[in-house]
Design a binder for these strands. Structure first.
Lengths: 228, 228
DNA sequence: CCGGGTAATATGTCTGCACATATTCAATCG
DNA sequence: CGATTGAATATGTGCAGACATATTACCCGG
């Protein structure tokens, strides 16, 4: 019977689905389950912990483990680098750096990155192409202090790839939304003004300082998808 | 020094950021790290495993652990029930069931749920309101076989809430996209035709059968956001 | 009846050990 | 020289026991 913690996770999930253990109810303790399944408590713990981070169970010390009433579904998305995304479709990736200049950051960007508005950062405008067709229109604010003395040529290597290779791991947040194309976006992406476009916005910080804030405008038909 | 696996995870992350351990390079074995930090190997394992599922490390038996070259960022989103979402904004949730009827499923829906096109399912149209304003326009295909003999009145309880309470836990996938409002959507949501709308699509299955396929059309300005 | 302190309890984590399993490296044989 | 076989190795998972910690339940005094 004891086929590892994954078997236990599956069995627990089954009992929840069959309503042996109804939503809101507490399930047996780790010790009892360990005895029933003939495994160590650590093994049961592993299985239940995974189900808890998945949002299926809620666990509290002393109170025990209960089946979540409103299972807040957690979806995990992979956010790949754009080049990878294009190549995964079997297309050729290229990009054009349309603009790069020093500017004072506007208030919303500043507050999002946690710096004073008017602070001078690098502003860049990039168009990513898949097989020569517009794929993503990227506008970015970049903290110049993360760059080395002689800055790399971002017409050669895309900012994002340079950052993941040289600045290293960072925290950040991501937001998705929909927006009608502005005049500029319509022109660059080759769509009608007001067309519905999918937007990804990301901000990232290193341990010390804000790194970058990006807004990606995706070509029509773009989807973000998850297999749960 | 030994403050548990979280401290170890943090220290490993730090060394990666400082490029003590550069991208693509292998890091010391669990045993070596356990010795260095003065903890058991299981503790190191826990820390490294978490970083591996986060996409920061890549681990292979015998080959060792290496720092991911292209850290595929994984974003985790919470997908709450609509009522919770509205109430979290401090607004009052209500909904109106606009239509409910039996229909044969069209091809795209059928293939997504893995059933034959033309199979008869329940089709429903619901409008969710926040403080009386249109919030989400929901169209749904529902497998009648998950309902009890005398079906619940979905004008009283929203389908989604009935499902989470009575059908229980299911797998599914989620997709986000952007789309211009159709004539019907524009009318129901009170926006201009062609306005950019954020779309969420979900399909869910139980262990035995497909349960439901939903398309949620969100009011303008809607965002899905993640704190990583 | 209420509030505070205390004990009981379920989970969280750790240790030290063992064996399983995947993968690589090397040696051996045709 | 190439392919197959076999050992070496790093991670994956397991067990039993222990202590830590959060939270609840209970008792007792006011």
């Amino acid at each position: 019977m004891s086929f590892g913690w994954e078997a236990i996770r599956t069995e627990v999930l089954r009992r929840i689905r069959v309503r042996d253990w109804p939503p809101g109810g507490t399930i047996p303790t780790e010790e009892e389950l360990a005895f029933e399944f003939g495994v160590a408590r650590a093994t049961v713990n592993r299985a239940l912990r995974e189900l808890a981070v998945a949002g299926v169970l809620e666990r509290k010390r002393r109170a025990g483990t209960r089946v979540a009433v409103l299972p807040v579904r957690k979806a995990t998305l992979d956010i790949p680098v754009i080049r990878q995304e294009v190549e995964a479709r079997g297309q050729v990736h290229s990009f054009r750096l349309l603009a790069q200049e020093i500017r004072g950051v506007p208030v919303p960007v500043g507050s999002k990155l946690g710096i004073a508005a008017g602070e001078r950062m690098i502003w860049m405008e990039t168009l990513h192409l898949a097989d020569g067709q517009p794929f993503v229109y990227e506008t970015r604010w970049l903290n110049p202090s993360v760059l080395p003395p002689q800055a790399p040529d971002f017409a050669e290597i895309s900012v994002n790839e340079w950052l993941v290779a040289h600045v290293g791991y960072a925290l950040g947040d991501i937001a998705f939304s929909a927006c009608g194309a502005t005049a500029r976006e319509a022109e660059v992406m080759g769509v009608a003004e007001g067309a519905a476009l999918f937007i990804t916005e990301r901000s990232t910080w290193s341990a010390e300082a804000p790194i970058t804030a990006v807004r990606l405008v995706h070509a029509p038909g773009y989807r973000v998808q998850t297999l749960v």
